[in-house]
Structures are given as structure tokens and as C-alpha cells.
């Protein structure tokens, strides 16, 4: 893909892009990774604390505590998104706040809040999954393929 795109460029375009690239401010990849590690780790640690709380207070098991933990994290995300804090955390944390489920929650909730001005049905309803939709679509589709292969192998393959 990248090579095909490059081939289509005229020589003067290639020359300009190289010229430009030398002066581009580089992304601080190492620093960003450290920040993503710390904030991402912190969010998972909070998740673990919440999940431990559910296990000891409400008799959830290790397996079933996952669902209320996720719901609680997304509730907290709603508050942080609504008060305009989550996008600031994200500029610092990058993938650290995008990869945990809180990032998924933020994508849904921020779209819902933003499109409120276009009404509840066509604004909030239609646009809510604009950013998070691909995650659901390809999550479901890839899970279907994986489960299909596994089922065929186990049920008919005799494993």
C-alpha cells in the first residue's frame, strides 16, 4: 500500500515530501510509550481494585466480577467525559487511555454528547457508535470466524 502510493507520486512531490519530512516535528515515541504504559497500567490497576471490591463485598467470583467492573469503569468515564477531563488525560496518555474499555466508553459517550445538538434520534442515536462502531463490527465478525473454525475443529475434527 505504502509503496504503491509512493510510486504514484511525481518526482517533485517525492522531493517535497522528503524536504518536508526533515523539518516535521517528530512524535516523541519513547516518551509516549512510557506515558501510555503508566496511565494504561493505572487504569487496569483501578479495574483490579474495583473487581476485588465486587468479589469481597458482593460475592462475585473472579469470572463474574468482570462485567460490573467494566460497567463501573464506563460510568466513571461518563463523568470524566462530561466534565471535559477525559480528552485532557488522553492528550497526555495516548493509547494509555484509548485501549482500556474506558477509551471505548469515551468514544461512545463523547459522540453522544457532541451530537445532542442534532436531536436524540438522528443526532445521539445515529452518531453514538460512529467511532466505536468498528470495534463492535470487527470484534463480532472476527469472533464469529474464530468460533466457527474452533467449533468445526472440535465437533467434527474429533479434537
Amino acid at each position: 500500500m505504502g509503496d504503491k502510493k509512493k510510486q504514484k507520486l511525481q518526482p517533485n512531490q517525492q522531493q517535497y515530501q522528503a524536504f518536508q519530512q526533515k523539518r516535521e516535528i517528530k512524535r516523541p515515541i519513547f516518551k509516549n510509550c512510557i506515558k501510555a504504559f503508566l496511565i494504561g497500567g493505572l487504569i487496569c490497576l483501578i479495574g483490579q481494585l474495583i473487581s476485588t471490591f465486587y468479589i469481597y463485598q458482593f460475592n462475585f467470583t473472579e469470572k463474574t466480577a468482570g462485567n460490573p467492573t467494566v460497567a463501573t469503569l464506563i460510568f466513571i468515564t461518563m463523568l470524566l467525559t462530561g466534565f471535559g477531563v477525559y480528552d485532557r488525560i488522553a492528550q497526555f496518555a495516548g493509547a494509555g487511555s484509548a485501549v482500556p474499555v474506558t477509551g471505548f466508553g469515551n468514544a461512545v459517550i463523547s459522540s453522544a454528547i457532541e451530537y445532542r445538538s442534532e436531536g436524540f434520534i438522528l443526532g445521539v442515536g445515529s452518531n453514538m457508535l460512529k467511532l466505536a462502531g468498528p470495534v463492535i463490527v470487527y470484534g463480532v465478525f472476527s469472533a464469529f470466524i474464530v468460533a466457527l473454525i474452533k467449533t468445526i475443529l472440535t465437533q467434527w475434527g474429533g479434537f
Binding site: 515515541i29 509516549n32 510509550c33 504504559f37 493509547a95
Partner: peptide, 20 residues
């Protein structure tokens, strides 16, 4: 708790590398 932090953080680092 320690491993939750480390493993969760590392998955986020993979995400950051995909971004950057």
C-alpha cells in the same frame, strides 16, 4: 495488582506503537 498494572500497561504500549 502488580501484574494487572504491568500487563495492562504493556497492551497500551502496543496500542501506542500502532498510533505513532
Amino acid at each position: 495488582f502488580f501484574w494487572a498494572f504491568v500487563v495492562g500497561g504493556l497492551i497500551c504500549v502496543i496500542g501506542q506503537i500502532m498510533f505513532d
